[in-house]
Structures are given as structure tokens and as C-alpha cells.
């Protein structure tokens, strides 16, 4: 079976800085795959590279077998990739409704009503806040909005960059719960980048560990959680 996302020996960077070297990673359809690693390991660079910015220097990126290496960002997003970027990046002066519509308009010509409903069942809170400006939402609500906005384009592959960033543990749990539900109910494929390694590995089917731009370990979420070196490096070493 062809993986939904197949990254083969990818290298990428910014100017003189090599952010990723020889990264190979597969995401099968219906999977939640997580990418964990320390600050500056290249996690976000990998997600951005999948979206074509920065463009890969070497290697191939394929989406269900189709080569998308070096394609412009908007063309990649049009093939069913959606990203909820790091730091949420919602549009602060636009209303929640406008934010959500922005997610649909660029990519589909369909009526966004059905997608809106799906987002509201996942995050009922957003429905209450429809007319409110994005910038006035709480951090958790903004994260819901960022994920909801990404879902509006009916993606095949959802890229989530640090969805728990700056959220209270309870709210982070709520967001992780929503991701799990989304995957279980609609079969959406998710590639999740997280610093909160414990939560991410518990949620994911499989995980990769990124150190200095290279993949050093991979395995099922449970297996990685059990590895002592993972516990040592990313989980605070206790237990």
C-alpha cells in the first residue's frame, strides 16, 4: 500500500543553516504519526518543508505516490494537505466565522456549510463565538479555531504544529481528545509535531524522534514511550 505521505531522504535548510538532513518518514492513511524532539531539532522545518517552504534541497516528497517536491505551497495545499501552524496564527481582526471561511475559500468551490457543521460538532465552543474577533479568543479557543480552520478545506493529511503550545494542561488534554476523536470518527490522517512528548506518544499510532535534523528513532507510540532513553530525554526522566 502506498503511504499517504512518503518523505524520502529529505534535506532542507535556510541559507547556510542545514535544518534537515536525510530525513525519511512515512505516514499511512488513517494514522496519527507524531514527531518529537527538542527545541530546534527541525520539527517545524519538516512540516514547513512538506508545504514547500523552505523548498527541499535533496530528496523526494510524495503524496499518495504523486511527487510534490518543489511544488509551490498553494499547489501542495490544494492536493489535500492542511496545516495548523505553530503559534496558531489566526487572523486577529477577523471574526471566527471569517477565519473559518478563509480555510475553505482558497481551496474548494463547495458550499462550506457542511464543513462548518463538522467543525462545530468537534468544537462546539467555536459556534458560540462565531461573531467574535479571533484576537479576543482565549488561547485554547484560538487553537480550536486554528485546527477548525485547517479542517475547512477537507484535508486528507492534517499537519499540526505544537497544538498544545502555551495551553493549560486541561485545555491541552481537550485538544488532544479532539484530535483522537477526529481520527477515530473520520479516519483523518494526522502528522503531529509536539514538545509534549508524553501526550503525543500516547495519542499517536507511531512516532519519530528528531535530533539535530536527523531521525534517530522510530516505532509505535507505546514502544517509544517504553524506551528508557526517550523517558530520559523528553519525559523528564522520572518513573
Amino acid at each position: 500500500m502506498t503511504p499517504l505521505l512518503d518523505i524520502d531522504c529529505l534535506s532542507a535548510g535556510y541559507g547556510a543553516v542545514q535544518a534537515l538532513s536525510d530525513v525519511s518518514l512515512q505516514v499511512m492513511s488513517g494514522e496519527i504519526v507524531t514527531l518529537i524532539g527538542a527545541n530546534g531539532a527541525g520539527k517545524s522545518s519538516l512540516l514547513m518543508s512538506i508545504c514547500g517552504d523552505p523548498k527541499p534541497r535533496a530528496g523526494r516528497i510524495r503524496l499518495t505516490g504523486e511527487d510534490i517536491t518543489g511544488a509551490p505551497t498553494h499547489a501542495i495545499m490544494r492536493r489535500g494537505v492542511a496545516q495548523s501552524p505553530e503559534g496558531r496564527r489566526i487572523f486577529p481582526r477577523m471574526t471566527v466565522r471569517e477565519n473559518l471561511l478563509m480555510g475553505a475559500e482558497a481551496l474548494t468551490r463547495e458550499d462550506p456549510a457542511a464543513q462548518l457543521e463538522q467543525v462545530f460538532t468537534l468544537f462546539p465552543r467555536l459556534k458560540e463565538r462565531l461573531a467574535q474577533r479571533g484576537g479576543t479568543l482565549s488561547g485554547g479557543e484560538q487553537q480550536m479555531l486554528a485546527i477548525g480552520r485547517a479542517l475547512m478545506s477537507k484535508p486528507r493529511l492534517l499537519l499540526l504544529d505544537e497544538p498544545s503550545l502555551g495551553l493549560a494542561p486541561l485545555v491541552a488534554k481537550l485538544i488532544f481528545g479532539a484530535i483522537r476523536r477526529l481520527n477515530a470518527e473520520t479516519g483523518l490522517t494526522v502528522l503531529l509535531v509536539e514538545q509534549n512528548a508524553f501526550q503525543a506518544l500516547r495519542l499517536a499510532h507511531r512516532g519519530y524522534v528528531l535530533v539535530n535534523g536527523r531521525i534517530t528513532m522510530e516505532g509505535s507510540g507505546a514502544a517509544l514511550l517504553a524506551r528508557p532513553e526517550i523517558r530520559e530525554a523528553y519525559l523528564g526522566g522520572h518513573g
Binding site: A82, P85, M102, A106
Partner: peptide, 10 residues
């Protein structure tokens, strides 16, 4: 950046 992430042709 959010615009790019949403597939808008900047």
C-alpha cells in the same frame, strides 16, 4: 504565514 498555510496564493 497563516495565509500560505491555508493554501492562499500569496
Amino acid at each position: 504565514i497563516a495565509c500560505r498555510a491555508l493554501g492562499i496564493n500569496v
